[in-house]
Amino acid sequence: MARIQTEHGGRNVQVDEYKGKKIEVATGYDARSDRWPVHVYIDGQKVSGQASADNMSEAFDYGFALAQREIEQQ
């Protein structure tokens, strides 16, 4: 996978493709929880569920792993 960061700042987004499906993972620091919420989209459709991580790198890693599992199950 060759992730590309397309948004920076309050909302950070990385995109990639896996088995012909476009994956987008979005995250941004949430001061209230001191965590990084993870939002995952496959071909523009939000993957259900909630997750958060300790840092931005972990959020992206988790999001792409989740998306790959979802695609494998389709």
Rank of each mutant, 00 (worst) to 15 (best):
D16V: 00
R32P: 07
A51P: 04
E17W: 06
E7L: 11
S52I: 00
D61W: 05
N55C: 09
Q5D: 08
G20Y: 06
I71V: 02
R32W: 08
R11F: 02
N55F: 07
E70H: 12
V40P: 01
R35A: 15
S33C: 03
D34F: 09
S52Y: 10
H8D: 15
F64I: 03
V47Y: 02
V25A: 07
I71T: 08
V15F: 01
I42M: 03
E24C: 04
Y29I: 06
Q74N: 13
D30P: 04
S52E: 14
V13D: 04
E17G: 12
A26H: 06
I23G: 10
G10Y: 06
E58S: 15
Q50L: 03
D54Q: 14
Y41V: 02
G44M: 05
Q68V: 12
D61H: 03
D30K: 05
T27Y: 03
G9Y: 01
V40Y: 01
K22H: 12
A31G: 12
K21R: 14
I23F: 07
G28L: 12
V38I: 15
S33Q: 11
A67K: 01
N12E: 14
G28R: 03
G9R: 01
V40L: 07
Q14W: 03
S52W: 11
G28K: 02
E58P: 09
F60R: 09
F60L: 00
T6M: 03
Y29H: 14
K19T: 03
V15E: 15
G28I: 07
V47M: 04
G28C: 04
A67I: 05
Y18T: 09
A31V: 12
G49I: 07
R69V: 08
V40M: 00
V47A: 02
V38P: 07
A51S: 13
T27W: 05
E72M: 05
I71W: 03
H39N: 15
D16Y: 00
D54S: 14
V13I: 14
D16I: 00
Q73E: 12
D16T: 11
Q68P: 00
F64P: 02
M1I: 12
A59P: 13
A65F: 10
F64K: 02
S48D: 13
D16P: 04
Y41G: 10
M1N: 11
K46C: 04
K46D: 05
V15R: 00
M1F: 08
E58C: 08
Q45I: 08
K21S: 11
Q5T: 06
V25M: 04
V40I: 09
E24L: 08
Q74S: 15
K46M: 14
Q45G: 05
I71M: 09
G10C: 05
Q74P: 01
R35G: 05
W36E: 06
G44C: 04
D54C: 08
A26L: 01
R3L: 14
R69F: 01
T27C: 12
V13M: 01
S48E: 15
A51Y: 08
A59L: 06
T27S: 15
S57G: 11
E17P: 00
K19W: 01
E58I: 10
S57K: 07
A65T: 13
R69L: 13
G20E: 03
A2F: 11
Q5K: 06
E24G: 11
A59Y: 07
A31R: 11
E24M: 06
I4S: 13
K46R: 15
V13G: 00
K21G: 04
T6W: 04
Y41D: 07
S33Y: 03
